[in-house]
């Protein structure tokens, strides 16, 4: 790919999604755009970029952005966030919400493994939920991922990555070579297409936001803008869960780390002006 073409694609992807593509990612861009060109019947990457420059084919731009997103995910990924949800967050919220629903937002739901893991965990907690219902929203920029998430159908490989066999037995059934999640778990999660660069106030307010391993692809000013806007979307204490290698420190002070709980943050109402709704 010519440097000028790479620069054009990198700028386009950044404008549309916030994802930062540095020149060392040129090989990645080429390897991911090749299948897009083939699928669209475009003979070469040069021609693909020419088509993008004309901007006459908006779905092509969407397909390029979609191809450049990283969708790595698996059930109960990293375990710790789910242990924190079970042992710290839910007990606190059950005590504070007094029967009102607990609202959870998975901000980069990808193909659905994270929100479904939360739904299965909540199902297993039984009386510990104190009668509280949980509403889970999964959003992602990738329509392709959301379609798979909504279908709830996973390969044998996918159901063996992080998913305990007891959950497989309880919540899945085999369909051909694949495994389909139960209607009960599937119906516990709503999905919606969402670009984190866009205004997400219409999503409403949440008690917990899972935003793991997504902000690493953004530059610092974009991370700050997203986190600051997320802080206004949470109901204090407003929990935020980030990836094990991520932090809000040095980026924004609207979220403060919870002691002895790596990756867990609560909103600082003094920085956002938020108070708990009556």
């Amino acid at each position: 790919m010519k440097p000028a073409d790479f620069d054009f694609v990198a700028k386009l992807v950044r404008e549309r999604s916030g994802l930062v593509l540095t020149p060392d990612k040129a090989y990645l861009v080429e390897s991911r755009l090749g299948p897009v060109a083939r699928k669209e019947g475009i003979p070469s990457l040069d021609d693909l970029v020419s088509s993008l420059r004309l901007r006459t084919h908006s779905p092509l731009v969407d397909a390029v952005v979609d191809a450049m997103t990283t969708n790595e995910t698996f059930f109960f990924r990293d375990k710790t966030p789910f242990e924190l949800l079970e042992n710290v967050i839910i007990p606190d919220l059950v005590a504070k919400k007094r029967g009102a629903p607990i609202k959870i937002w998975c901000a980069a739901a990808s193909t659905g493994q994270e929100p479904y893991s939360i739904a299965m965990l909540v199902d297993s907690l039984g009386h510990k939920m104190g009668g509280c219902k949980v509403e889970i929203l999964g959003t992602d920029i990738s329509e392709r991922c959301l379609e798979k998430a909504k279908a709830g159908i996973y390969t044998q490989f996918e159901v063996q990555r992080g998913l305990p066999v007891q959950y497989l037995m309880k919540h899945f059934k085999k369909e051909g070579e694949n495994w389909k999640i139960s209607d009960q778990v599937r119906s516990a999660v709503r999905y919606r297409s969402m670009n984190l660069l866009d205004d997400f106030r219409a999503l409403g307010r949440f008690d917990v936001i899972f935003c793991r391993n997504v902000l690493i692809y953004f530059d610092a000013p974009t991370k700050k803008r997203i986190l600051d806007r997320m802080a206004t979307q949470v109901e204090p204490p407003g929990y935020l869960l980030m990836g094990a290698a991520e932090t809000t420190l040095g980026i924004t002070d609207v979220f403060k780390p919870v002691q002895n709980a790596r990756g867990l943050y609560t909103v600082d109402p003094t920085k956002t002006g938020l108070t708990r709704a009556a």
Binding site: Q156, Q160, G162, V165
Partner: peptide, 24 residues
Amino acid sequence: MEAGANEYIMKPFDSEIVQSKFAE
């Protein structure tokens, strides 16, 4: 599982799956 297994791997498998199940 009723016979007393603790976890279950379906072949084909790789190191990631074995590690995931052994961690579980």
